[in-house]
Design a protein around this nucleic acid. Structure first.
Lengths: 414, 414
DNA sequence: AAGGTCTTTGTGGATTTATACAAATATTAA
DNA sequence: TTAATATTTGTATAAATCCACAAAGACCTT
């Protein structure tokens, strides 16, 4: 008996993805889950109540929990599945509640459309079962291709609406709400625009990966996204409370994941202010763009800043430079230090900058400058003397750092 | 013998103030000094080499040392002399090197023109001597009146030149230098414009007092001064080095002296940037005016600020308010705190302001707010939590304080 | 009225900073 | 060149800050 189980396709002629899932489950004698490419739940078998925590969480949340996805990435399963049509046996990962299972990806050419998961609750699947699983994959593929084409039609009108929001074309609140309704979306209570600037052209493969991350993340709720030149623009609302921290974390993790998972480095990202009113999408978008511009001007200073609101003084620097130029103003205190540095080959100016940047913390500053803490103290004393600077005066300290940054910005423009 | 020494006026027909001083010295048999109303040395006797340190310093410096003047004010001699035609016997003040002496003021109506000082080195003056001193005063008065009228003529052209400088009418450096020469003045190597804003109209008595302080100070070198409405405008160069500290100290002491000596309170003063080029007098003047405007807006914050250069961030507030308005920006962190304060009747916003203003010093801030240091620590923790604020981030702290001041400025405009 | 949270004040110990002083080296001026 | 001054590093001590914990009062909800 070489291939006794090949006779006919047991998955033919089944209507509906749910029914297909049930059928696969019957054949393989184990719980089955079908996901799209972004790990959203499409269908799952119900006959069998044996299951594991990861599957329960997936069904409850209509998507695979992010920590499960992360561990499957780390452990190599997902990268394998994305590049192979063969079923993959995955060992249990108890930390995230994942039992033994077999998975197969559903692919069209190089593009992944989705996955089938079969849980090995009380028995391992045999070669025969894996063969059936591949056949099931073919059947599911046909269903997904249908879904896919229907989706892209819808996609068009989404994109159009999003650009209307971004460019502020829709002035009427009622109009916006109606449009949301038409697209079968709930107007978000609060949202913000995120912009990611890629180092080069975004190819179609990267596009897939972006889509993948945006659809799988659970830190924020992505409403729309679009690509323009090297930029990825996203409209998203916060997951739980109106916390700005969620955005920060997402942007950070997006950049890390694009780098670690897909080898795309050098991405810069940020978001505008969170707003309750969708009319303000345009402003939030502009703010995100401003943030990215300033990140170019002050790469080190703004490295850990991901939101417009957190830009602090760096937002002021361009307008203040203009004021300084109009006024013909030169900071005498800094001038003294600069000239002293020049004549004596010292680094008082730089020392002051790092000291102020680091909130006047002696130890931290000394470490950054690779000098002894007492050396720093001595230099600070000299800075006070030479520049007639009072380093206990907060106003003066602020003005000094701002002028230092203005000078830096001015130089960067030359 | 009732009045045996009255026969004729021994000071009649003497030409020149120096000769007059010698003559007085001969009659009284003691060293004599003649000063103008501003304690500038006009003449002194030379026959007698017996003297005291104060007199030596006066002759060397061509004026009475400031500390001597100060102690004579404190001790009451000068106030007396300004209001009396009678000679005054002054006890020695060893701290400032002043020996026993007799002084008389030379007055025309209520206006003091100068003083005669007679040192009692080895013998006290008798009533007869005091009588001669009064007669000497009459003789000196005639000399001084001559000087006085000649001065006011010159004064006119000084004033004109000063206003030309203040309004930037003189664009050519050579022209300015020539003008200085014409007026018999050395162009200053560096100078700055000081402006004092008086609470009300400056009457002629106050005018005299102003003139007195400006002419007697030795902290700065006054080149010109003029009055306009309630403002006193001064062009002065630093005494020794190019130190901005001299100006600060002078402005402070001017305000104190006007108050303590002449009972004129509520004066605000400040100076513009020190410049080497006299073409920049206009800018320095404008800067001083800007400083005074900001002192009105931020009375507490700028209380100890006397120079434009030391204004720090307060100089930025107006332009930043405009930016914030244009951008339609609202600081979310502060908004959180403000709303929390409103709902819970707490003072987190105010606490943050005082804490930041005082350079994040726990004890100082706690004292100012009249709360326990631990209460402050607790509030700061709550500020971090509620506003999602990181109080170890200098950039964020600066931005917070600036936005607090922007808000305050905005409110002050309503 | 009871229970919970928020706020204030207190205590004590670990950590950080301020400051003075000493010694070695580098730099500058005479 | 020497002598004076500036700079760096080290040690030691007092002062200030940070942090965890606890007790008590204020305020709110049930």
């Amino acid at each position: 008996m070489n291939e006794p189980y090949l006779e006919i396709d047991p998955f033919k002629g089944i209507f509906g993805l749910d029914n297909l899932a049930e059928r696969i489950s019957e054949i393989l004698k184990c719980p089955v889950t079908i996901e799209d490419a972004n790990h959203r739940l499409l269908a799952y078998s119900t006959h069998d109540e044996r299951t594991d925590p990861a599957r329960i969480a997936t069904i409850i949340g209509r998507r695979v929990p992010e920590k499960v996805i992360n561990s499957l990435w780390r452990e190599g399963s997902i990268p394998y599945l994305l590049n192979s049509d063969e079923p993959l046996r995955i060992k249990s990962i108890t930390e995230v509640g994942l039992g033994d299972r077999v998975a197969i990806s559903i692919r069209k050419k190089q593009e992944t459309l989705g996955f089938i998961w079969a849980l090995e609750i009380d028995h391992s699947l045999e070669d025969k079962d894996l063969h059936y699983l591949k056949m099931a994959g073919q059947a599911v593929k046909n269903h997904l291709l249908n879904l896919h084409t229907r989706k892209t039609e819808k996609e068009e009108s989404y994109q159009e609406f999003f650009w209307q929001l971004l460019t502020g074309h829709l002035e009427n609140v009622e109009e916006i709400k109606k449009k949301f309704k038409t697209l079968n979306l709930l107007p978000p209570e609060a949202s913000s625009v995120l912009v990611f600037k890629f180092p080069g052209k975004i190819d179609s493969k990267t596009e897939k990966n972006i889509s993948y991350i945006l659809k799988t993340t659970q830190r924020i709720k992505v409403l729309f996204y679009t690509l323009q030149n090297n930029n990825l623009i996203v409209l998203a609302s916060p997951k739980s409370t109106e916390s700005t921290g969620d955005y920060d974390k997402f942007i950070k993790s997006f950049i890390i994941q694009m780098n670690e998972r897909f080898g795309v480095g050098g991405i810069k990202g940020g978001c505008g202010t969170i707003h309750e009113n969708c009319q303000r999408v345009e402003k939030s978008y502009q703010e995100a763009l401003t943030l990215l511009e300033l990140k170019d001007k002050f790469p080190q200073e703004t490295e850990a800043i991901y939101s417009y609101q957190a830009l602090g003084i760096y937002l002021f620097i361009p307008v203040l430079l203009e004021k300084r130029k109009n006024d013909g103003f030169e900071n005498q205190y800094l001038k003294c230090l600069f000239e002293y540095d020049f004549r004596h080959k010292t680094q008082l100016y730089k020392t002051l900058e790092v000291y102020l940047e680091n909130d006047s913390r002696i130890n931290e500053t000394a470490n950054l400058l690779h000098i002894h803490a007492n050396t720093l103290s001595y230099r600070l004393k000299r800075i006070s003397e030479i520049g007639e600077i009072n380093l206990d005066d907060y106003n003066q300290k602020m003005a000094l750092l701002i002028d230092i940054k203005i000078n830096k910005f001015n130089k960067s423009l030359l």
